[in-house]
């Protein structure tokens, strides 16, 4: 037993299994113990991680001449030694069979929709048409931040939000409105992580043009967000944006000075 534990071949196998357990079970179930949200890792990412670990292991065992020879030894013994005849035959059947089974599951027709890639923050156009009027988004800032009374804009924004947005995005702006469970993807929450990365012009574009106005990589057919330019005025959208940033307690990403 100890002999096996010291052998690089079996060590590698153990490391591989341990890594697999960490990736599949560890990431999914350990953080929740500490109160951090987590979820099972998608198959594509598991594959990617395991491939990286496997490459790392192979690099390690082959980086030293002696270790590499030792590592290859069980493989050679298995392939050549006469007293391993039955193991060899079993493997010769088992490995192709395994590949066959994997291939079967790969090509088997399923009813699941193919995974699609949805870009959460697709590139905005430089210019949009807002109710027929062109608005240049590039370097655009919220005009209401420089004019009028900010508290008044906040009040308008709050009213607009609670009249229009609350059903999906929720009372607490956490994306848990009454309709939220009906949608996939779920409505966005306005925490620090999302809108703080964005310029206000981006937020304006998303509110004005909604899901249908998303470019292709944003998978417009997936988003239920209406195009609010048909309902809200320009100033109302800007006010909502002020309200959102105020509630999230962050300031929008700014344009760097020229």
């Amino acid at each position: 037993m100890k002999r096996y534990l010291r052998h690089p071949f079996w060590q590698s196998g153990l490391v591989l299994i341990a890594a697999y357990l960490v990736v599949t079970l560890g990431i999914a179930y350990l953080p929740p113990i500490l109160g951090i949200a987590s979820a099972p890792v998608p198959g594509s990412v598991v594959l990617q991680y395991m491939a990286t670990v496997l490459v790392g292991i192979l690099l390690y065992v082959s980086s030293d001449e002696d270790r590499w020879r030792e590592f290859k030894e069980p493989v050679e013994v298995m392939l050549t030694s006469p007293d391993k005849r039955y193991v060899r035959s079993a493997l010769l059947v088992a490995i192709p069979a395994l590949i066959g089974v994997l291939t079967f599951f790969q090509v088997r027709p399923t009813v699941a929709a193919p995974p699609n890639l949805r870009s959460i923050h697709p590139a905005p156009p430089s210019q949009i048409s807002f109710r027929g009027q062109p608005i240049v988004l590039d370097r655009l800032e919220n005009p209401l931040r420089h004019e009028g009374d900010l508290n008044e804009h906040l009040a308008v924004g709050r009213r607009t939000y609670y009249q229009n947005c609350v059903a999906c995005h929720g009372d607490a702006l956490d994306g848990n409105g009454h309709f939220a469970d009906a949608f996939s993807p779920r409505p966005l929450e306005f925490g620090t992580s999302t809108i703080a990365q964005l310029t206000e012009s981006f937020v304006f574009w998303r509110i004005a043009k909604g899901g249908v106005g998303l470019p292709r990589e944003g998978a417009p057919w997936n988003s239920a967000m209406p195009a609010w330019e048909d309902v809200l005025t320009e100033d109302e959208i800007w006010s909502v944006s002020i309200f959102l940033y105020d509630q999230a307690g962050v300031s929008p990403r700014t344009w760097e000075a020229e």
Binding site: A39, P42, A112, A113, L117, S184, P185, R186
Partner: peptide, 15 residues
Amino acid sequence: TMIADRDELAAMGGT
């Protein structure tokens, strides 16, 4: 943004 099928997406609550 991860590539995932429908069940995995549901478990993650998004991409």
